[in-house]
Design a protein around this nucleic acid. Structure first.
Length: 588
RNA sequence: CGGAGCGUAGCUCAGCUUGGUAGAGCACCAGCUUUGGGAGCUGGCUGUCGCAGGUUCAAAUCCUGUCGCUCCGACCA
């Protein structure tokens, strides 16, 4: 990447950089703290160091990458018409109480107290903050639409920080908030961000898939996540090969189970039979019972906003908690304890069923519609019921989509089999609606002079996570392979003999200086090290282009250009600069 | 929050079962040699054995507590 093209203001002052003058503490061995590839390489390449769990110090090289990613984000956000602001990290709890998220997000909030013992929060996100600003500053439809963004540190008390920067207590996030006069206009704002995100991740050299997503604690009507497919990802996505459908598994739907649900009634009434020691679907599928899982009804008990509900799924299906939360419009839910279950149904987990249950709401998964001849728990420890016809024998309060889709099920849109893959979430865009504007008073007067709440959207990018996701997606056995756009330096000049004034060093310095003057972000490895050490380090750190100057090739007046992920090229020493410039140009 | 594993030199680890003067490799420093893929030799530096308490003549080692790190789980009844 040419520096002047990238508009990296501050970097321009650091044109000249020699390896011995900066700080690149590479590691030959992997620190024990790292488990996944990108985390190992983050540490080994000398990009960052851990201070405590989920807290990292960025070293000069890592910071350069971070700044380049931020620069790309700024350019694309500005291009999309968003306005940069900077909001405080420290926030008053009152606005969180107003929005209701003081409770809803209590688990991730960091609380701090001042001298007067007054409570403050370290911001995990800034919807409240920006909405309060807009509430006081924006009064007319003439001032809309607006989209404010910032790139700042966020704090979240994660249940389990892990994988280095992937899930940290403190991390850099780009967050943007749009305010519109109506739904239609909000959708335009949303689409602009969608397009900006596609460009941002493309420019960062990341392959992402935009998937339909669950809205979670942020709230709102619909959303897309930008996912980087990776084995180490913490999310699962389902997608159709056609590219026409992709969704987070928390949200994904299909044509239904591959094996149809039995719907032929045996005609018989429910019959209780003893099943001593049988506590799982799997056990009931084994001899002597031999009830296939899809002939069983799985019965779960959840506590939703302090009240119990019974959930029914096919025996071979998995409950999708996100769908349940979405369908019931709350995030305050948890599995009931065995004690609560016993009190409610008179039996312990493993023997539960919904036949005859009328004192608790019963929510059944759509795959069970019309199910007949099923087997389920009898609400008596050690017994099950067979010949259960759900329409006849169970009072279903509501039918809901509660099951998790499985790989191979058919896509609703195309009829092709769905694939499931793990993925890293690097960006998330939400259409929020008026949830925050109503609660926090972001109201403007429309053309008729009527007060209306602004229609909001919010848009996040995990900047530090994106950095590590790039490493996770782009590496080989030797180290990182940085895309040119975000590499800490684009070119590494590697003289194999650093004797000052010597022929090799002189030629290396000449090439180096010419590249710098051409606006190329280059570093000169002036360390008095053996060639093997320099080669290994440059590959570990992952500079996109290495120019080696050594005795061997110089015998033919040549130097070596080695793209990190490409073939070695021998070129005449006077051609080196031009060839490097060509390579850079071609990559842009 | 539940479960498991691990805390010994800057890094990777051995030593712990069976208590008895703190170890190796890498890194670092000095010197010589080497010089196109993480060099070789010689010499040297480096430790509250995570912390606190206990048992013991004696604790890195055994016991208790505690803190930290890593992994799994915290839907699938």
């Amino acid at each position: 990447m040419l520096i002047r093209d990238a508009c990296l203001g501050n970097l321009c002052k650091l044109l000249e950089m020699r390896w011995t003058q900066t700080f690149i503490p590479t590691l030959k061995e992997t620190p024990a703290e790292a488990e996944i590839t990108s985390h190992k390489l983050l540490l080994r390449a000398g990009l960052a160091r851990r201070l405590a769990g989920g807290l990292y110090t960025f070293l000069p090289l890592g910071l350069r990458v971070l700044r380049k990613i931020e620069a790309i984000i700024r350019e694309e956000m500005n291009r999309a018409g968003a306005l940069e602001v900077a909001m405080p990290c420290l926030q008053p709890p009152e606005i969180w109480q107003k929005s209701g998220r003081y409770q809803d997000m209590s688990e991730v909030l960091y609380h701090v107290y001042d001298r007067a013992k007054k409570e403050w929060l370290l911001g995990p996100t800034h919807e409240e903050n920006i909405t309060v600003l807009v509430a006081s500053e924006i009064n007319s439809y003439r001032q809309l639409p607006k989209n404010f963004y910032q790139i700042t540190v966020k704090f979240r008390d994660e249940i389990r920080p892990r994988f280095g920067l992937m899930r940290a207590r403190e991390f850099v996030m780009k967050d943007a908030y749009s305010f519109d006069v109506d739904e239609r206009s909000a959708e335009v704002s949303y689409q602009k961000m969608y397009d900006a995100y596609v460009r941002i991740f493309e420019r960062c050299g990341l392959r992402t898939i935009a998937v339909e997503a669950h809205t979670g604690a942020i709230g709102g009507s619909f959303s897309h996540e930008f996912m980087v497919p990776a084995e180490s990802g913490e999310n699962e996505i389902a997608f159709c090969e056609s590219g026409k459908y992709a969704a987070n598994v928390e949200k994904a739907v299909s044509q239904g189970p591959l094996i149809p649900t039995p719907t032929a009634s045996t005609g018989a009434s429910p019959e209780k039979f003893p099943t001593p020691g049988v506590l799982t679907i799997e056990a009931l599928a084994q001899p002597p019972y031999n009830v296939p899982a899809h002939h069983q009804i799985k019965t779960l008990v959840y506590i939703v906003e302090s009240k119990p509900v019974v959930l029914l799924l096919r025996g071979d299906d998995q409950l999708n908690e996100a769908k349940l939360a979405g369908a019931l419009g709350t995030v305050l839910l948890r599995p009931a304890t065995p004690e609560e279950i016993y009190e409610l149904l008179g039996a312990h987990p493993g023997s539960l069923g919904a036949v005859g249950v009328t004192h608790v709401p019963v929510y059944a998964d759509l795959a069970l519609r019309g199910a007949a001849g099923m087997t389920t728990g009898a609400n008596q420890d050690g017994f099950h019921l067979r010949h259960v016809d759900i329409a006849r024998d169970i009072k279903v309060t509501r039918w809901l989509d509660l099951r998790t889709v499985k790989a191979g099920e058919l896509c609703l849109a195309t009829g092709l089999p769905l694939k499931i893959s793990r993925a890293i979430e690097v960006g998330h865009i939400f259409k929020l609606g008026t949830k925050y504007s109503e609660k926090l008073g972001a109201v403007f007067l429309d053309e008729q002079g009527r007060p209306r709440p602004a229609v909001m959207g919010c848009y996040g990018i995990g900047v530090t996570r994106t950095l590590q996701a790039i490493i996770e997606q782009s590496n080989d056995k030797d180290g990182i392979i940085w895309p040119m756009s975000v590499a800490p330096y684009t070119v590494c000049i590697t003289p194999l003999d650093v004797t000052p004034g010597g022929r090799i060093m002189s030629i290396a310095e000449q090439i180096y200086r010419q590249l710098i003057e051409s606006g190329v972000d280059a570093i000169l490895d002036d360390r008095d090290e053996r060639p093997g050490v320099k080669f290994k380090d440059s590959e570990l750190v992952g500079f996109p282009i290495r120019v080696a100057v050594g005795e061997k090739s110089l015998a033919n007046e040549q130097v070596e250009i080695k793209p990190r992920a490409g073939q070695l090229m021998l070129v005449h020493k006077t051609e080196a600069v031009n060839r490097v410039l060509e390579l850079i140009k071609r990559a842009n």
